[in-house]
Structures are given as structure tokens and as C-alpha cells.
């Protein structure tokens, strides 16, 4: 009986030794360096920084005259003895970053721990959705800034209103995407599982959770982005320390280079946190990483 199939349709490049995550990352990085993408990226940065330099310091264009210039900002930022008292060598700089990061961490973790399960159940149970979702849809479009007074009234102290505002934005993004993730799962997976003898609870664990994972991580990416957005908004009106607070006080004290330092720092840290979320997603979804890697 020669029922063993001739492997005529073998995809040859998937045989061979198992690809480790690290070597996959290294391989991607190497091919990224070989592509034109990093150089295009550098040109993009150069254009914006160059325009900033020329507009403020060389051409002195109208409306740009009060702006801090490129050289002024960078020399202040990397100065051992900064004129306005804030550079990468002052502990105060790291205090602002640390406090902001701590608020983000609390808010993001809380939003994830509540939002993911809520989203899973909203997608999973029709009755639960009928009951919660309309309320959710009315609360969600309310801009975070509109919550500011209420947050200050509701929460004592200066710390918790900021965390609450940051949490709120993240929570909506995470919950909604998780729910969409559950809805996106092809019904044939649940049917196949129940056909094979899985209970409803097993279908939830083995099909719904992993199936929704790509959407959950898209949600977490959005969530970390909006978390920074609402954090800065919150820090500008309440609280002490933090990058939003730094920018706002620098504005009031007319220490303009500090505004730009705060902004660039926010950009870099915001990017880093969202990269971390993406890496965690890649780590948890090996099957997807490999699928995408083949498509490259």
C-alpha cells in the first residue's frame, strides 16, 4: 500500500533546521540594511531637521523667530551644564521620564488586564454584548480631554486623575479591538474544534483567544499610542513631574528649548514602548511571524 504521498508539492524553503526567533530578527535586520529603506528614512529626518535649522537660524522666517533653533536645542539637550537646567546629564530629566513611564505602565497594564477579557467576552457572548456594547459605544467617542474635570473631581491627589485619563483611552482601544478580533475568527475553526470534541470552554481557550491575538495586539499598539496622548493631556492639567508637565511649565516659564527636548523625548520613548508591545506580540504569535516572514 503506497498511500504515502509523493511530496510533489513540497515547499522546499520551509524544510531544513528550525528558524529561531533571534536569527529571524537578525535576518530581517540585515535585509532591512540592504534595502533602500534605512537611507530613505535618514533622508526624511534630514529634510525635517534641515528645514528647522534653516527656517529658524539661517533664514529667520517670520513666525519662526521666537522658536528655539536646532543647535540651541541640541546643545542644551547634550550639555553637561545646561542653561535651563535640563539635559541628559541632569537627574531631573530622568525623573520626568521615569514618572511618565510609571503612569503609562500602571494605566496600560490596567487597561490591558480589564480590556482584553472584557473584549473577549463581548465578542464571545451575544447576550453580554447586547447588554454592554451600546453603553460602550456612547462612552467611547467622548474625547479624553472632556473627562479631565470629572477625573479631577472624582480622584483625590494629583497622580490618580492622570492615570485614570491615560487608562480610559487605552481601555477603549484595547476592548474594542479585542472584540473585533473575536468577531473576525472564521467560524470554521470553532466548528472544527467542537466537531473534534472540544467543549465550549475549550473552544474559548484554544480557538477564541489565539484567534483574536492578532487583533488584540493591534489594539495594544493603538492603546499604547493613545495612552501617551492622554498622559500628556493629563499631565498638562494635573500632577507634578512627567514629560507633559515639563512641556507645559517650560512654556509658562518661557524656557522654549525645554519644550522641544520634552517633545523629542516623548517621540523617542513613545516609539520605544510601541516597539516593545510589537515585539511581545511577535514573541507570542510565532505562527504569525513565520507566516509574514515567508511573505517577505
Amino acid at each position: 500500500m503506497s498511500s504515502t504521498m509523493k511530496t510533489a508539492d513540497v515547499v522546499t524553503n520551509t524544510q531544513g533546521p528550525e528558524v529561531s526567533t533571534l536569527s529571524l530578527t537578525m535576518f530581517r535586520f540585515a535585509s532591512w540594511l540592504k534595502s533602500p529603506r534605512p537611507y530613505l528614512m535618514m533622508i526624511g529626518f534630514a529634510i525635517v531637521l534641515g528645514f528647522w535649522y534653516l527656517a529658524v537660524e539661517v533664514w529667520k522666517l517670520p513666525r519662526f523667530e521666537d522658536m528655539p533653533g536646532l543647535t540651541e536645542v541640541f546643545s542644551e539637550w547634550f550639555s553637561k551644564d545646561p542653561y535651563y537646567g535640563l539635559s541628559i546629564f541632569t537627574p531631573e530629566y530622568y525623573l520626568h521620564i521615569g514618572i511618565s513611564l510609571r503612569r503609562i505602565a500602571y494605566a496600560f497594564l490596567l487597561a490591558t488586564c480589564l480590556g482584553v477579557p472584557l473584549g473577549l467576552f463581548l465578542g464571545w457572548s451575544k447576550n453580554f454584548r447586547e447588554f454592554i456594547f451600546p453603553l460602550f459605544e456612547v462612552l467611547r467617542p467622548i474625547p479624553i480631554l472632556a473627562w479631565v474635570p470629572l477625573a479631577i473631581i472624582m480622584f483625590a491627589g494629583s497622580e490618580s486623575p492622570v492615570i485614570f485619563l491615560t487608562f480610559l483611552a487605552s481601555f477603549f482601544a484595547t476592548t474594542l479591538n479585542t472584540m473585533l478580533g473575536v468577531e473576525s475568527i472564521d467560524e470554521s475553526y470553532s466548528r472544527a474544534a467542537s466537531c473534534l470534541g472540544a467543549s465550549r470552554w475549550q473552544v474559548f481557550r484554544h480557538v477564541v483567544i489565539p484567534g483574536a491575538m492578532p487583533y488584540i495586539f493591534t489594539g495594544l499598539q493603538i492603546s499604547i499610542g493613545v495612552a501617551w496622548f492622554s498622559l500628556v493631556a493629563g499631565e498638562m492639567v494635573s500632577g507634578q513631574y512627567g514629560l507633559g508637565y515639563l512641556i507645559n511649565t517650560a512654556y509658562m516659564m518661557i524656557e522654549y528649548p525645554k519644550i522641544i527636548i520634552g517633545m523629542i523625548t516623548l517621540g523617542i520613548i513613545g516609539f520605544a514602548t510601541s516597539a516593545m508591545v510589537r515585539m511581545l506580540g511577535d514573541y507570542l504569535m510565532q505562527w504569525r511571524v513565520r507566516e509574514l516572514a515567508l511573505g517577505d
Partner: peptide, 13 residues
């Protein structure tokens, strides 16, 4: 009664 569906229902994960 096991069903093989039109589309592959292998769990991608």
C-alpha cells in the same frame, strides 16, 4: 461524524 470543510480549518496557531 467528522467534517472537513471547504476552506482549511487547521488552526493556524
Amino acid at each position: 461524524r467528522l467534517v472537513l470543510f471547504q476552506e482549511s480549518a487547521l488552526f493556524p496557531w
